[in-house]
Design a protein around this nucleic acid. Structure first.
Length: 697
DNA sequence: GATCCTCGAGTTCT
DNA sequence: CTCGAGGATC
């Protein structure tokens, strides 16, 4: 059916008008027309589109809702990682940050863009030729969940970028949150319906965004504030962060009106106090303020350390505190037998959640804070997450309250408890005879970052171990549906899911398997190093550890000598793995019991893949060998090495025919000449960063 | 031997 | 998130 020209025109008018009102209402908070009039416009457009389906376009406001529910979210890799910020908790730390920035930039004064730190969920919105094509959660910073349909329902988020010349690609970064007033209203409704209330706006926003059915998200009235840009192409260039924010505002993204540009530390601290005073009256929750070096070229120069930019810091407001009483101090047993004292508290609402437990870490901490059963204590959430006992209120101590002591015997298995002289931690000596340690070992084996067996949780493992159905990880692979279905809270269906998940876990990268074994001191990183070096589980099991320790020591000595002579050091053997860790591995692999479990696992059909990352995108770095020479402008040699290795590349000491790239910095050594001689590709730092951009970590 | 950094282990609540 | 320990470096 052809659409009459007049109708097409009217539909376009309606869309523009509706989006204009959305903008007035959701972004500027200054509506022009009553809600009833808005509804009338919206209904008219809906009717036109129903009558002439050819009119429907993805940027129509009626399309904000309407996508069908999903069964699960897809995983998205961010083009530019969404990193976290370092925190400052007091003025001194802010001063230290400013000093580091000025020293690195050689400036007497640095300018900062200051803005509130929203307490919501970080998301990334991708616009292609001006159209919103994808929205994703931050996730772990490198990969997040695709929640496009849900983000489309957020009225403050433009479906299309305003203005004539939209960039070819623009990733807008910002925070999705729920206004305090909306939160109160939502909870009132939940209460009326007899449904569970949300504890705070952040959780309500998170819960709403992770709805598989976008209709639910649409009913929750979320809002959004933009604070930055990830990858961009064809966007105007800016020299300052504040200009970038002004641009985002101009193309109709909501940007915090509280933002300011300050010119020194005193300006930062004034801003912090000013926002702090107004915090309670702001329509949304914040947990601090953020300062970013305003000059974008300076930002680039400062670069990154590990997972956080060096050019920005979050200045946090003190955590909310509350008082409660310690009802008991109990002792938990971890995977390695570590005994951890935990304070059981009279439930208290603090920092947006009800807290009933708080770890006391170890006996030294208990003594330092002098926490006793019956004490009145001040509790807060460290970094607004993990509950901790801040201090005791000594005046309120009941008479006769006794000092806490670690038990002499393990509360789970009754074995002797030991504390290695000079170490802070008490340990149960029961090893795998201790049910607690066995349970934790199995949970660790199945955990997401190890063998990733979904559905094998604490409750299930408790039952499996208590009923002697599972003693070692190898026993998991002998479970069948009938056996599992005999357990509590386990019907045929979920039993089937667990069996399938166990079956699914049979193919895993070698590094994950090594990590899953739970060798003391061997976590994810060390497991990767071992996997890369040995390449097979049997090579690891049969290694000559004392010889390796000696060889490593020799290389280190040689390298120390080479450094003094300004020569290139040799590639270190098993970097990050020293004698302690090697002895721990040797100890593990020589125990007949452990060898037997590994053989049983292999016999059960576990296949170990050598690659670090299964199904990862092809990479320009993976499998290539790099040599670094000279000083790079931003990355230290170590950082460059780590970044390359994180992407599956290798960094070696000397140039040879096997070298793929030589990364050349300032004042390069003889290695550049060698590279020229052998005709090996050379890169500067920028070139290396380009390669990394196209390469999955 | 001191010092900085990274990794591992343990922890909370939804 | 925090603490403690091991590793790397000077």
């Amino acid at each position: 059916m052809t659409v009459p020209a007049g109708i097409t025109k009217r539909a376009r008018q309606l869309r523009e008008e509706i989006e204009r009102h959305n903008y007035r209402y959701y972004v500027l908070d200054a509506p022009l027309i009553p809600d009833a009039d808005y509804d009338r416009l919206f209904r008219e457009l809906q009717e036109l589109e129903a009558q002439y389906p050819a009119l429907v376009s993805p940027d129509s406001p009626t399309r904000r809702i309407g996508a069908a529910p999903l069964s699960q979210f897809a995983e998205i890799t961010h083009r530019t990682p969404m990193l976290s910020l370092n925190n400052a908790f007091d003025a001194d730390e802010v001063r230290a940050f400013d000093r580091r920035v000025r020293e690195a930039l050689r400036l007497r004064q640095a300018e900062y863009a200051a803005e509130p730190k929203f307490d919501g969920l970080a998301v990334s919105l991708t616009y292609a030729d001006g159209m919103l094509v994808q929205g994703a959660t931050r996730g772990d910073g490198y990969t997040g969940e695709e929640v496009t349909a849900n983000l489309r329902t957020v009225r403050a988020i433009p479906l299309r970028i305003a203005g004539r010349r939209a960039p070819a690609l623009l990733e807008v970064r910002g925070e999705v949150l729920m206004l305090k007033a909306e939160f109160e209203q939502l909870n009132a409704e939940q209460r009326k319906r007899g449904e569970k209330e949300f504890v705070n706006p952040r959780n309500a926003a998170a819960g709403s965004l992770r709805q598989l059915d976008p209709h639910v998200t649409a009913s929750r009235r979320l809002t959004f504030f933009a604070y930055g840009v990830g990858t961009a192409a064809g966007a105007p260039g800016f020299t300052k962060h504040s200009e970038l924010l002004d641009y985002l505002e101009r193309i109709r993204f909501p940007v915090s009106r509280e933002r300011e540009v300050v010119h020194d530390v005193e300006g930062m601290l004034d801003y912090y106090h000013e926002i702090g005073e107004r915090r309670a009256r702001l329509p949304y929750d914040i947990d601090g303020v953020v300062y970013k070096v305003n000059d974008l070229a300076a930002q680039e120069k400062l670069g990154f350390v590990a997972r956080a930019p060096r050019f920005a810091v979050a200045h946090k407001y003190p955590a909310e505190e509350a008082t409660t009483t310690v009802e008991a101090i109990e002792v938990q047993v971890g995977r390695t037998g570590a005994l951890t004292p935990v304070a059981r508290l009279r439930p208290v609402f603090v920092g947006g959640v009800t807290v009933t437990n708080a770890t006391l870490h170890n006996i030294d901490q208990v003594r330092a804070k002098d926490v006793r059963v019956g004490d009145v204590v001040v509790v807060r959430r460290a970094g607004d997450v993990i509950p901790e006992v801040a201090r005791v209120v000594p005046e309120k101590r009941p008479r006769g309250a006794r000092e806490f002591d670690m038990p002499a015997k393990c509360p789970v298995c009754g074995s002797k408890v030991e504390r290695v002289e000079s170490e802070a931690i008490h340990r149960c000596t029961g090893g795998l005879h201790c049910a607690a340690q066995r349970k934790q070992a199995i949970l660790h084996f199945a955990s997401r970052r190890a063998m990733d067996i979904e559905g094998l949780g604490e409750k299930l493992v408790d039952q499996l171990v208590d009923r002697h159905m599972v003693r070692t990880p190898a026993d998991l692979y002998r479970l069948d549906v009938a056996a599992l279905a005999s357990l509590e809270r386990m019907a045929e269906k979920s039993a089937g899911n667990v069996v399938a998940a166990i079956e699914n876990s049979k193919r895993r990268p070698l590094a994950r398997f090594i990590h899953a074994l739970g060798i003391y001191h061997v976590g994810e990183e060390v497991a990767k190093v071992l996997s890369r070096h040995f390449g097979s589980i049997h090579a690891l099991m049969d290694a000559e550890w004392e010889a390796l320790i000696a060889a490593k020591e020799q290389i280190q000595k040689d390298n120390a000598r080479r450094r003094i002579r300004n020569e290139e050091p040799e590639e270190p053997l098993l970097p990050g793995v020293g004698p302690e860790i090697m002895r721990s591995i040797a100890n593990f692999v020589t125990q007949p019991h452990n060898r037997e479990v590994i053989e049983q696992l292999l016999a059960a059909g576990i296949e170990l893949e050598r690659s670090m990352r299964a199904n990862s995108a092809p990479s320009t770095i993976r499998g290539r060998t790099f040599v670094l020479t000279g000083t790079l402008p931003n990355l230290t040699r170590d950082e460059a090495r780590r970044e390359i290795e994180a992407r599956g590349g290798r960094v070696s000491g000397g140039v040879s025919a096997k070298t793929d790239y030589v990364v050349v910095g300032a004042d390069p050594g003889s290695k550049r000449d060698k590279a020229v001689e052998l005709g090996i590709k050379m890169l500067d730092e920028r070139g290396l960063l380009e390669l990394m951009k196209d390469s999955v970590r």
